[in-house]
């Protein structure tokens, strides 16, 4: 799978996942890996960046299996950004699909 494609949608997929429920790092990685195959290492930098840009909030929650885990929560700004990305993607997708159809049936 083309790396550029994956890179392009990774942010959006992460935002969409977190919109459903708060998750901790490892959980996010697993969720995203179900949809697109991606290098786990790069998820954390992405999480860090989006947190810095105030799209995420983090908090610690006690866990039954060891030390407290850091959970990520989508902020209002994050939600707006997520919607923006989703719309851009749908538009983008549509244009490309139309073009492909044109190419396939001259």
């Amino acid at each position: 799978m083309n790396a550029q494609f994956k890179k392009g949608v990774l942010e959006m997929v992460v935002l969409l996942s977190l919109a459903r429920k708060d998750m901790y790092g490892y959980e996010i990685v697993s969720e995203v890996s179900k949809i697109i195959e991606v290098n786990e290492g790069t998820i954390y930098p992405l999480l860090k960046r989006l947190t810095n840009e105030k799209f995420f909030e983090t908090y610690l929650r006690e866990s039954s299996e060891g030390p407290p885990r850091k959970y990520y929560h989508l902020t209002k700004a994050g939600e707006m950004y997520k919607d923006e990305l989703k719309n851009e993607w749908l538009q983008f997708n549509e244009s490309v699909m139309t073009f492909i159809k044109e190419c396939d049936s001259p």
């Binding site: 290492g41 790069t42 954390y44 930098p45 992405l46 860090k48 960046r49 810095n52």
Partner: peptide
């Protein structure tokens, strides 16, 4: 190395 680069990039 790549990882570190991306991490620092986030900042």
């Amino acid at each position: 190395e790549e990882l570190v680069k991306e991490l620092l990039d986030a900042y």
